[in-house]
C-alpha cells in the first residue's frame, strides 16, 4: 500500500491536503514533494486530513515536522485533522513535539481557522491576505 495525497483547492491563506495509506520511509518523499510548493509565506494554515491514514512512522513524523518548521517563521501552522487511533497513539508518544493543533474533525479545524481569521481582522493588521 502506498500513500495517496489529495491537494484540495486553496482557501484564504489555508490549504487542505488529505492523506490516505501509509506515511513511512517509502512514501515520505512523495509528501515532501507535494507540500514543498504549498509552503509559501502566504500560507498560514496547512490543514492535513489524516482520517484515511493507516500508518505513520518516524520518517512520516519528520515530514510533518518539516512542514511545520517551514511555516513557523512567518507564523504559519500545521493543523492535523481526525487522526485514527493508531496514528494518534504515535503522535501522542512524541508529544514532546508541539504538533499542537490536532482536531477531531474538519468542522473543528474550520472553526479554529475562522476564529483565527477574525482575530487577524480585529487586530487590524493591514496586510492584504490574498
Amino acid at each position: 500500500m502506498s500513500l495517496d495525497i489529495a491537494v484540495h483547492p486553496p482557501g484564504r491563506g489555508s490549504q487542505r491536503v488529505s492523506l490516505q495509506g501509509r506515511l513511512d520511509t517509502h512514501t515520505y518523499e512523495d509528501l515532501d514533494e507535494a507540500l514543498a510548493p504549498l509552503l509559501t509565506r502566504q500560507l498560514h494554515s496547512l490543514v492535513l486530513d489524516l482520517s484515511g491514514l493507516d500508518y505513520i512512522s518516524s520518517a512520516g513524523l519528520r515530514s510533518l515536522l518539516k512542514a511545520r518548521k517551514a511555516l513557523a517563521p512567518h507564523g504559519g501552522k500545521v493543523l492535523l485533522v481526525d487522526p485514527p487511533p493508531q496514528i494518534r497513539k504515535v503522535l501522542d508518544i512524541v508529544s514532546a513535539v508541539p504538533l499542537n493543533e490536532i482536531f477531531a474533525s474538519t468542522a473543528e479545524a474550520d472553526a479554529y481557522l475562522d476564529a483565527m481569521q477574525r482575530r487577524i481582522v480585529e487586530e487590524g493588521d493591514g496586510d492584504a491576505r490574498d
Binding site: 512512522s57 518516524s58 520518517a59 513524523l61 519528520r62 515536522l65 518539516k66 518548521k69 504515535v90 508518544i93 512524541v94 514532546a96 513535539v97 508541539p98
Partner: peptide, 21 residues
C-alpha cells in the same frame, strides 16, 4: 530519548525519534 525534538529535529536523523517509538 529525543529530549528536545522541537529544536533539533531537522538536524537530527530520524534515528532518535524512531528508536524512541
Amino acid at each position: 530519548p529525543p529530549d528536545d525534538l522541537d529544536a533539533g529535529i531537522l538536524e537530527r536523523t530520524t534515528g532518535g525519534l524512531g528508536l524512541h517509538l
